[in-house]
Computed example of a mutant assay.
Amino acid sequence: MLNVTNPVDGTRIAYQVIGDGPPLLMVHGTALSHVIWRGFGYVKALQDHYRLILVDVRGHGRSEKPHHPDSYAMDLVVGDLLAVLETESPSEPAHALGYSFGARAVLSLAVGHPERVRSVSAGGGSSRPMAGAFDALFFPGCIDALETQGIDGFLAGWAARRGSPVDSQTALAFRSNDPIALAAYMRRSDVEPGIDDAALSAMQIPTLLFVGSRDKQRIADSRHAAALIPNSSLTVVEGTDHATAAAASGPVLAALIPFLDDVSRSGTS
């Protein structure tokens, strides 16, 4: 693993680089880590054509895990991604792929620093305010459960809400986290204001949005963003919810690979 330090608050961010070609920044979702991209088959499918920059979001994986909610402000997360890109792709804008929280992060990066982003691929994300989002997405009281019952208690509550166990790859990634840091991250996300609609309407970066057909919390948000971003398209991954859409790498990659190839060939940035 490689590391960079956010110059604003000194938080250490871990990441890995795999493959060769145009840079593709990849940002995972809540309670996961960079290894999820390998587990779900994205690395194998993309590494021969793109230089994959796989980031562990602060508070996750091998990155530093602060315990204060203010450490997870979106502007600091975007600063983490910029620090990685300034190290790994200082003179070339990168494609940016994110799922769930990662989708929000790459959209925020694109809005705030469009010169650093060649394309955006955002799955299961939301640009809207996040108050109550984790209770809706996982189960009511999930943040308190993390603090009092740890990761296993959280996973049990989520499985009960879904009516089925969380897939093994996702559960394994969740268990690698510090529950107190994860709770702090969620509490800060709850008060984030979101991305202004006008900023999305002004985006000129090619954008692919994807979402599970059964992702009740995010399908409306994805359609909302697709309607606002001028150069965008939306792929609905049939039969999947928020927990399983990213794992359905076949249909996601069927949309993602042609999108990335088209942008790379066109030279659009």
Rank of each mutant, 00 (worst) to 15 (best):
S264Y: 14
V84S: 06
S63C: 06
L209T: 10
R116F: 05
M26T: 00
H242N: 02
A136P: 00
D9H: 01
V237I: 10
H68A: 05
S269P: 03
N6D: 15
Q204D: 11
H113I: 00
H28E: 13
E192D: 15
S264R: 08
A227S: 09
G79W: 05
L32Y: 07
I229H: 01
H67F: 06
E88G: 09
S264E: 15
T30G: 00
G157H: 09
L2I: 06
R214S: 10
F259H: 07
Y185M: 02
T240S: 15
P129Y: 01
T11N: 15
A247V: 12
Q204C: 04
A184E: 13
F101I: 11
D262Y: 02
V106D: 00
L2T: 05
P258T: 00
H60S: 15
M26S: 02
A220Y: 02
G157L: 10
T207V: 00
R128T: 03
R116C: 11
D152L: 04
P69V: 04
G124M: 12
A159T: 06
G41N: 14
G141W: 15
I13K: 04
A183K: 00
A243G: 08
D135T: 05
F138K: 03
D178V: 07
G19N: 10
L107W: 08
F40E: 07
A246L: 07
S100H: 06
H113A: 09
Y50F: 14
D190T: 02
G29Q: 11
V43T: 08
P23I: 01
L200V: 04
G212N: 01
R265W: 12
N177F: 13
A136N: 05
D221P: 13
H68M: 09
A255K: 04
T244R: 02
A198H: 10
H34P: 02
A226D: 04
D20F: 05
M26W: 01
D9F: 03
K65Q: 12
T244N: 01
D241A: 14
D20K: 09
Q217L: 13
A254K: 08
G239P: 14
V27A: 13
F154S: 06
T30E: 00
D190Q: 13
P230A: 01
L200H: 09
Y15S: 10
S266W: 05
L85N: 09
I36F: 12
A199C: 04
V8M: 03
P230K: 02
Q47S: 03
L234I: 01
L182V: 04
D144F: 05
A184N: 11
T30S: 01
Q47T: 10
S91Y: 10
L52Q: 07
V120T: 11
Y42M: 04
D48R: 15
T244K: 00
A131L: 02
Q16V: 14
I18V: 15
D70T: 10
M203N: 08
D190M: 03
S264H: 14
P90D: 03
Y42E: 00
T244Q: 00
Q149W: 01
L234E: 01
L256S: 09
